[in-house]
Design a protein around this nucleic acid. Structure first.
Length: 593
RNA sequence: GGGGGCGUGGUGAAGCCAGGAGUUCACGCCGGCCUGUCAAGCCGGAGGUCGCGGGUUCAAAUCCCGUCGUCCCCGCCA
């Protein structure tokens, strides 16, 4: 095939016996028996055992002694069946071995900073510092491969379905809405800044105006918010939009794409169509707009039981328009300290308090508030909660939204399966236009180009108005969201107005976009989902860094290249930028950082 | 912005609560032995400013304060 090899080791099996091959790869492990020696050679396709036998090839006598792990080698030899009894069933190529005739070291390796096998976990900072070595490990190589397959499946599906891939700019206009922008200073226009896109949202809508009809892009996106296991400053989305479309077309398209992507990694497609649930239903039953449906533990309404009870703390909440709700987390630890820990967690989540109940042997209810409740009230609770002996119930009294969200999180704390062996996809539909803040204020739940189900509804009762917006969820992970867009400039203007964006302000920020809508904009709708999140779930990884080749740490550092870094005074001067004195002082105090 | 975990030879961990000589274990590394191993085995060896700074103490990896880094979570993420 090339001057370096004619065979990938992963292609070798019993049928290859007798062939003379040339392979190239890395010496993964060397087992020197004093005479005969075995070298596991790894290439991108797999691993094969090479035998170095001095009694057969005398000139190789010292070769094994001078080999070290991760030396890059080229080996010519004959494939042969392993002697009976020495086959390795754990290895795909374990039926055969390569008897080396020549061994050429293409490149030596220093001792590694960490081991590439899974014998010991390695600190992630060290892994990232030597990411090029980390990526040689089976786990990471498999993740890269899975990611490539997912992306290939997406391209194949959408290309076949008539979508056009269009690139949009990555140096764009900053808009203050949403996440913090990553800014890039302009040299030609000092004091002016580009932003890196949080998503290609407005450009893809312009493409609809442009008549592209069906657009998609595997797009890099940037959001300068704090890092999490599922969030990095830069990440990748499948971005997609179609003209003369509504929600049904978007969902069907995304379902087909995701199913193909899943099949590419998990070998089986999804059962379509995927389950759907309204936002209201998800919040009421699971206390989350991204419920994990792999387990039950649904939220139960107990307001009626407490409305007239002697436990005044709860009764008064109900009287004041609040609710009492609970989950049954099943048989679990019932020690006082553990239950107190749950109370602390509930407070961290914003609950005013939490009451636990334990169903004891014999059906007695142990709880700090048991003495305030009638036997009939306790019975109502255990029946409503379907509580059996040993079960632990967690009760929260609060405003409806707060109570549900706290219980939703506690539900995850106590019920969520580890990992992602099974996949439970779900559409959440009918999102509200606004989120209501604790003090009663309204903040847009989506970008302001999302079409409301009805403009009249939006105008008359904005707090309950429903948007044509939908999210895709898998195992409690929000993969992405989309909506039917506004295509009528008059509606767009009105929505800006209701969202509290003044006409002049809207014109200043989005005038160019409103102008575009005035030229025969087709009805359109779309979606975007995170490739990193999807692949991390499919690969059963705990965070998206494991499926990104070169991710950053929680403080935005790339330990491999040490970016971000200082730049020269000249570079700053060209941009008309000067560091703030406080920043300079800090830098002088810590010159190494 | 806040809460929590972690930081000990190249890697991973134990030691810390209850202060007493850089102690231990596994892997790796170097050398020797070994002709069918496959996480090879056996023998020997090297390798550490216990993240950094300060404090308490006769004495600090261990206790206290600060700081840096990292991971998880809350906030934030239209």
């Amino acid at each position: 095939m090339t001057a370096y090899r004619d065979t990938y080791v992963g292609d070798l099996d019993a049928d290859a016996a007798g062939k003379t091959v040339t392979i190239a790869g890395w010496a993964s492990r060397i087992r020197d028996q004093g005479g005969v020696a075995f070298v596991d050679v790894r290439d991108a396709s797999g691993l094969v055992q090479v035998v170095i036998a001095p009694d057969e090839v005398p000139e190789l006598a010292d070769v094994a002694r001078n080999l070290r792990r991760e030396y890059c080698v080229k080996i010519l030899g004959e494939v042969r069946a392993r002697p009976a009894g020495t086959e390795n069933l754990d290895l795909p190529t374990g039926a055969i071995e390569i008897a080396a005739k020549t061994v050429e070291v293409l490149s030596t390796s220093q001792p590694l900073p960490f081991q590439l096998d899974d014998a010991v976990e390695t600190d992630e900072l060290v892994r990232l510092q030597y990411r090029y070595l980390d990526l040689r490990r089976d786990r990471m190589a498999a993740n890269l491969k899975a990611r490539s397959r997912v992306v290939a499946a997406i391209h194949h599906n959408l290309d076949s379905a008539g979508f056009m891939e269009v690139e949009t700019p990555t140096l764009i206009k900053s808009t203050p809405e949403g996440a913090r922008d990553v800014l890039v200073p302009s040299r030609h226009r000092q004091g002016h800044f580009y932003a890196l896109p949080q998503s290609p949202q407005l450009f893809k809508q312009l493409l609809m105006v442009a008549g592209v009809d069906r657009y998609y892009q595997i797009a890099r996106c940037y959001r300068d918010e704090d890092f999490r296991a599922d969030r990095q400053i830069e990440f990748t989305q499948l971005d997609l939009e179609g003209s003369f479309w509504g929600q049904d077309e978007v969902l069907a398209t995304i379902e087909a794409v995701v199913s193909d992507a899943v099949e590419a990694v998990r070998s089986a497609p999804l059962d379509l169509p995927l389950a759907r649930m309204t936002y209201q239903d998800a919040m009421d039953r699971f206390g989350s707009d991204k419920p994990d449906l792999r387990f039950g533990m649904e939220i139960t309404e107990l307001s009626e039981v407490f409305a007239g009870s002697e436990f005044k703390a709860f009764a008064s909440v109900v009287e004041g328009g609040g609710v009492v709700r609970a989950i049954n987390i099943g048989a679990s630890e019932t020690s006082r300290s553990h239950l107190d820990g749950i109370i602390d967690r509930a407070k961290e989540l914003g609950a005013k308090g939490l009451v636990w109940m334990v169903i004891e042997e014999g059906g007695e209810v142990r709880s700090p508030i048991a003495k305030f409740l009638e036997a009939s009230e306790l019975a109502s609770i255990t029946i409503a909660m379907d509580a059996g002996i040993g079960d632990v119930l967690l009760l929260v009294a609060d405003e409806s939204r707060e109570a549900s969200e706290v219980l939703g999180q506690l539900r995850l704390d106590h019920g969520r399966p580890a990992g992602h062996e099974n996949l439970s996809f779900l559409w959440v539909t009918d999102f509200p236009v606004f989120d209501v803040t604790p003090d009663g204020g309204l903040v847009p739940a989506h970008h302001p180009f999302t079409s409301p189900r009805s403009v009249e509804e939006l105008r008359e009762s904005p707090e309950t108005a429903v948007a044509n917006a939908y999210d895709l969820v898998v195992n409690g992970v929000e993969l992405g969201s989309g909506s039917v867009r506004i295509h009528d400039p008059a509606v767009q203007q009105e929505v800006f107005d209701i969202l509290g964006i003044a006409p002049e302000e809207a014109h200043q920020r989005f005038g160019w976009f409103l102008e575009a809508l005035r030229y025969g904009t087709p009805p359109h709708a779309g979606f975007a989902f995170g490739i990193d999140r999807l692949v991390s779930v499919l690969q059963n990884e705990p965070n998206i860094r494991e499926v990104m080749p070169f991710p950053k740490t929680q403080t935005g550092l790339d330990p491999l290249t040490s970016s971000p870094s200082l730049v020269t005074a000249e570079q700053l001067a060209e941009l008309g930028i000067e560091l703030h004195p406080e920043v300079r002082e800090t830098l002088e105090a810590h010159p190494a950082e």
